[in-house]
Amino acid sequence: MPSLLELEGLRRTYGSLTALDGLSFSVPSGHVVGFLGPNGAGKTTAMRAIFGLTDLDAGSVRWNGSPVRQAERRRFGYMPEERGLYPGMLVGEQLEYLGRLHGLSAPAAAAAARAWLDRLDIGDRMESKVETLSHGNQQRVQLAAALVHEPELLVLDEPLAGLDPAGIDAIGQVLVDQARAGCCVLFSSHQLDLVEDLCEQVTIIDHGRLVVSGTVDELATSGARRLVVRVEGDRDAAFAGGIPGVAVSEVSAGQARLILDGSVDSDTVLRAAMTAGRVTEFSFERRRLSEVFREAVA
């Protein structure tokens, strides 16, 4: 049976500041879910609430329908925003230790530590102290720490921040593979292009409330349809001005972006363009996640 993390009506205030204001959403297994929101939206507080690291004024966190307790949390993996490792401890021993705290036997923890370090291309740093590693490699060790016990739920707060492209690819691939293997993966990021590439599903919050949630495809194709048209001889897309329900949103270097309302047939637009001149480009445009995000939190 697929697993499901449910956050329901989470509320948390710090004095006069409301960090979470009735936040509810769910994370199904088998998907990488992007958790987005502007700074101070409540993402980190929500993630900490999953692990009991912050007290809730109201609401509940449920795993497969049951309240999350310590036994469940031991099967979760967490990578906090502010990285947390023992600087002077050896990488391999550190991962073994964390694996054991999550319920692995000593041999299983040692084997998993080595396997994950090899997988993340830092197997040769097993005997190094964490403080001697580069930022990128420390980030990989931190991810390995969240993964070493093969968690059923993976919660990662800004896992891609500060990584080079190779590091982003490596960690991104791990997240996708984990989801494919049946893990629930929830991660926050401000790198929206990367989120769009990695995630099937996105949840956007603002001021501690859910604003938008859905699959990337749904969000990209939701709202008014957009057309990109380039017509030789009509660089300003004057032809579109005569079609009811069509608006020109942007014209740049002979390429026009048109917004169609629901009543307009795209064939009508194509015919009008062909009448105006030779059509060299005519395509539907998906909304980029960054646009969805900006609209959602505006």
């Binding site: 009991g52 690291l53 310590q70 949390r73 906090p80 502010e82 947390g84 490792l85 023992y86 705290l101």
Partner: peptide, 16 residues
């Protein structure tokens, strides 16, 4: 040091 290095957050996610 556990608090300063933030490792306590990782640890308390698993133990009381």
């Amino acid at each position: 040091q556990e608090k300063a290095s933030r490792v306590v957050e990782v640890l308390l996610a698993a133990v009381r």
